[in-house]
């Protein structure tokens, strides 16, 4: 089932075209890596999917409905977003950070159910030890997990992430991406901008390759090949096979 669909989406920043016409469909229960070079428009695409930006041309459809016409509060119950390494400016506890994810479901004050849900998610992600700590006191990896917890508290079918692993050590990268994969298997649709092709190939189900503002290729991650990568990154690429795992050496 098509969850998010882009039709000839174009976007430019004051005359500088970033996306020149992207048509792509994100299917339900997939974990899609949006790949591409720096400046290829990954973050712009992510922000368009979230309606933080509006395309100058083309349309985005959420389950068949043009997202332009959806109410903000409704959209917030459908798509959660984790922005790239953002530390809250003012001291906030981990609990309150995750509770902020309940915002679209609240009328005013958080209900007992909201708090209950936060407690359960924190426990599930093994964050209970840090519940009342200020988020600024946590490591980057822990913070990323808290933001993911916030996205889960939002109870949306779709979660969009911008470079969730960029500041993490390998252990936390594996932990975060493994968790996202698990969520996909449990019914979530996840779209993630990421640099690391090998991580994408290992954890994601699908990929979308951007080059010069267009969708150069898309499909299941198994279809990523050295020729495509050479074309995108313009460096020699070698493919290594180790057991069932495939690596690309740049």
């Amino acid at each position: 089932m098509a969850v998010l669909k882009l039709e000839n989406v174009q976007f430019s920043y004051v005359g500088r075209p970033v996306l020149t016409g992207i048509t792509h469909t994100f299917e339900a229960n997939t974990f899609t890596a949006v790949l591409g070079t720096n400046g290829s428009g990954k973050t712009t695409l992510i922000r368009l999917l979230n309606r933080i930006l509006q395309p100058q041309n083309g349309h985005l459809f959420l389950e068949g409905k043009n997202i332009r016409g959806l109410r903000g509060k409704y959209l917030a119950t459908q798509i959660a977003y984790v922005q790239q390494s953002h530390t809250p400016a003012l001291a906030v506890t981990v609990f309150d950070t995750v509770l902020a994810g309940r915002n679209p479901h609240m009328d005013w004050l958080p209900s007992g159910r909201d708090r209950e849900m936060v407690a359960e998610i924190l426990a599930e992600l093994h964050l209970e030890y840090a519940a009342m700590r200020e988020i600024n006191t946590l490591s980057g990896g822990q913070q990323q997990k808290v933001f993911l917890a916030r996205a889960l508290a939002q109870e949306t079918p779709i979660i969009i992430l911008d470079e969730p692993t960029s500041n993490l050590d390998p252990r936390h990268q594996a932990e975060t991406l493994g968790l996202l994969r698990l969520l996909t298997e449990n019914g979530k649709t996840i779209i993630m901008a990421i640099h690391d092709v090998n991580l994408a190939a290992r954890y994601c189900t699908h990929f979308l390759m951007l080059k010069n503002g267009t969708a150069l290729a898309a499909g299941p991650v198994q279809e990523i090949n050295a020729a495509l990568l050479e074309q995108v990154y313009e460096v020699p690429v070698q493919k290594h096979q180790s057991g069932e795992r495939t690596y690309f050496l740049f």
């Binding site: 979230n50 933080i52 917030a76 977003y81």
Partner: peptide, 22 residues
Amino acid sequence: INARHYNALNQGDDTAHSLGVN
């Protein structure tokens, strides 16, 4: 009345936006 929106805003502009805050 908007206290919860300020909490959302504290998560960053983009995140607040995706949490339904104008």
